[in-house]
Design a protein around this nucleic acid. Structure first.
Lengths: 157, 157
DNA sequence: GGCGCTGATGTTATAACGTATCAAACATCT
DNA sequence: AGATGTTTGATACGTTATAACATCAGCGCC
């Protein structure tokens, strides 16, 4: 059975740092801080909320501060951008780069990542019928997560 | 074989007006104008580009003018919002309300709508395995359309 | 023929999201 | 030390979207 992602925040951050190092890049302090915020959040987080959090420790931080960190994290596979919500979420399994399906809860904003090769193949096939070639990307799907469906889904982030 | 959507702009607009009437709503002049712009564009269009076009005839138009029209058109099924691009596109077949797959060309910005019940079923099934219930929505998929793949895809809109 | 209701529009202002630009700091290599 | 490349700081700006409130047009009604 797969490991249960019980890593502590620190474990995740050092694994991320190693992952960057392997790619010849650095998880600098700012990037680390943004990633820590994403990992700590229960769901997705908006860029300006990250900015506000960072400004508590570093009042001079400006939008480019956080957008640069986010761009880096997304490029490194450490985070995903949810285009349909203008929000960001830590990647649950950056060691295995993937594009898949993001199940986004409309109520609590949590995100479940999954991959389904059958689904992807079907999509590519449908597209091919129109001569369209699909680029690698995440598919964003909105709905209600199990918790929120059962009525105990208090709004979180 | 299916009809080839060779309708003229006027045909489309009057069909849309009837569609609205059937729903107890009105395709007012502003809404009609925005829809006409969407129908005439080769691909998706940004809200502020629509605004600029409208301002040529009516210089007092402001952002709410166009956003209100767009909200109406989307709610009525006459247009789709492409969330991943912050752009809008006319619906190709509003008489048959649907949510499906939008194949968005990264180069020429054209959009091909399609539906695939098998794909949707598979997606719903995947989600269900996690207790997640999928809401009706369009799936946005980016890539390259047939034209642009073959090198004759000059940038359009 | 005026009254009140409703939906649509006008108008101003502002919120929310994101980028360009250029300079300064820092690291790394030789 | 000096050259080079990357990261950060800081200001300003561009883009996308909505809040809030006033006004207007149509329509049923008495």
């Amino acid at each position: 059975m797969p490991h249960a992602h019980t890593h502590s925040l620190e474990d995740n951050l050092s694994a991320a740092a190693q992952w960057c190092a392997k790619r010849g890049e650095k998880l600098t302090e700012q990037r680390r801080e943004v990633l820590a915020l994403l990992l700590s959040a229960p769901g997705s987080v908006k860029a300006y909320d990250l900015l506000a959090a960072i400004q508590k420790q570093k009042p001079t931080a400006a939008p480019p501060t956080v957008y640069r960190a986010l761009d880096f994290l997304v490029a490194a596979g450490l985070a995903h951008k949810l285009e349909s919500k203008n929000a960001f979420v830590a990647c649950c399994d950056f060691e295995h780069p993937h594009h898949g399906v993001m199940l986004i809860c409309n109520q609590c904003h949590t995100v479940k990542e999954l991959t389904d090769p059958v689904l992807e193949a079907r999509l590519a096939e449908d597209a091919k019928a129109w001569g369209f070639s699909v680029a690698p990307q995440d598919i964003e799907v909105k709905g209600l997560c199990a918790n929120c469906r059962h009525g105990d889904g208090e709004a979180q982030a």
